[in-house]
């Protein structure tokens, strides 16, 4: 066995294996592109899962500035919900809740809210808030 053959076998093949493993590990993240997966640089379009029943919600979110005034604003009342299909605008709500790290169960007695709609939501719904 010549020196070149030995170099190819004992250095080239391990190097090829290392490169192959690296490519297999990196491929999924490279396929995703440079889109940041979270944080302030997030620029992706909002996405809904659970369609087609979420169509009403998607429409409601798209029209939330138009439907504040109720059914007369032109939104289809049949498209969503048992709550008059009103999605409130959050810009005018004060006293935003501050959360620390970790999870918080959000029962009716724990959710500081200001508007009557939020009062109703906090009483009727449950759930939790988690930060990461």
């Amino acid at each position: 066995m010549s020196t070149l053959e030995g170099l190819l076998i004992f250095a080239g093949i391990p190097l090829l294996i290392v490169v192959a493993i690296t490519v297999m590990v990196m491929a999924p993240s490279l396929a995703r592109g440079n889109q940041p997966r979270s944080g302030s640089n997030w620029k992706a379009e909002p996405e809904w899962f659970g369609a087609p029943r979420a169509v009403g919600a998607r429409e409601a979110m798209a029209n939330r500035h138009q439907i504040e005034s109720g059914p007369a604003a032109g939104h289809n009342p049949a498209s969503a919900g048992d709550h008059d299909n009103v999605v409130s605008d959050d810009h005018g709500v004060t006293g935003a809740r501050r959360r620390g790290a970790g999870a918080t169960a959000m029962g009716a007695e724990q959710a500081p809210v200001t508007s009557s709609q939020d009062d109703s939501d906090s009483e009727q719904t449950g759930g939790a808030s988690v930060r990461w």
Binding site: W42, A44, E45, P46, E47, W48, F49, G50, R53, A54, G56, A57, A60, M61, R64, A80, G81, D82, H83, N85, V86, V87, S88, D89, D90, H91, V93, A96, R97, M106, A111, V113, Q117, D118, D121, S122, Q124, T125, G127, S129
Partner: peptide, 29 residues
């Protein structure tokens, strides 16, 4: 139960945004 997932920016407080989204689904209860 009906499951919905929304991934996107909140309008103001994220909890209130979630409530708004939940109100708008077909069978909120």
């Amino acid at each position: 139960r009906d499951f919905y997932v929304h991934v996107g920016r909140s309008t103001g407080d994220s909890r209130r945004t979630a409530w708004s989204l939940h109100r708008a689904v077909a069978r909120p209860a």
